[in-house]
Design a protein around this nucleic acid. Sequence first.
DNA 1: GGATCCCGCCACTAT
DNA 2: ATAGTGGCGGGATCC
Length: 333
Amino acid sequence: MFEDDNITCTPKRYVLTEVTNSSSYVSPTANLKLLTNVALHYPTPPPSAVHRKEKSLQILCDRFLDLYPLHRNGTVEIQLDITAARLGVEKRRMYDIINILEAMQCAVHKKKNTYLWHGGSRLNSFLKMLKKQGEALRLSDALRGRAPKPPAPKHKTLGVLAQRFLMLFLVEPPNTLINLEMAVRVLIDTSNKNKTNLSPEQQDRQHKSKVRRLYDIANVFISIGLIEKVSGNLILKKPVFKYVGSFKMKKAAEVLVTPSPITPVSWLDERRPSSSLISTGRSKRKLEFTTPSASRELKLGITTPPHTPSHKWDEILLVADMELTRINNGVVL
DNA sequence: GGATCCCGCCACTAT
DNA sequence: ATAGTGGCGGGATCC
């Protein structure tokens, strides 16, 4: 297994004999246990001291990406249990993150407890493919109730949901605002294939459950830097998200101490799509809460149409339009 | 109070 | 049978 020596908080690697002062042979299992033990002793905030927000999936993903950056040449193996120990979280949480990252082709499941980390090297081309898929599924029309919802996939729910959620942004014009309610409505299948009609209560629970999942997914996407949360618009109470499409580079330390609210979006920001590659990221990491445009690092090369000077009211109206569509159709769900 | 979403139970799958 | 995964929703916390 490889480790990143450039990471400031990377624990020093120990050979078992260094720790045990023993030269006798120990099994790999014992070695693994020891490593986990060492990792557990690494400075992580005591559970009682950390607040809920600091334990969010977004922050956790930030810290994960500090260990395994998106910009990195080559591949590296990830041991889930050790990584969980280093991050001071339950292994269950690692699945939440790695499943989404795997769905973004940043990692592949190699064997049990082991993933191969590719970082963002494949993300660029994968997003292009996602966009094509989204177009084939007619998601843009589906958003407006002008096309059927895409058929529900069977497996890897969280990963597929993540992919389809992202597709919504990719098929829409730049700066389109999407909220989770809208997304769920499109992405959830009400065309039950097994003919078992759900009661309104069941539908409601299913809907809420999917929204919960989208919150998780959105947090990971924010961490990756694919989307941004846009809060404080006057029409909708709920936050909406917009596609940013670049890796957000920030330091773990700054993430932890920055209490700022979500960056307000500069509506009139200029977005010139460039098709630079994402591969060579020898870039310095940036502060998190600079300006949104300054936080953009490398475009992912999605072929967005030449940006029509979008006005914020256009965007708001689009959201409002979609909300209206929802209300109109919402009676039936 | 509603929005957000952490947490861990437990069912399912792989070994 | 045991271990690894991950769906899922209760309910704590935030706003």
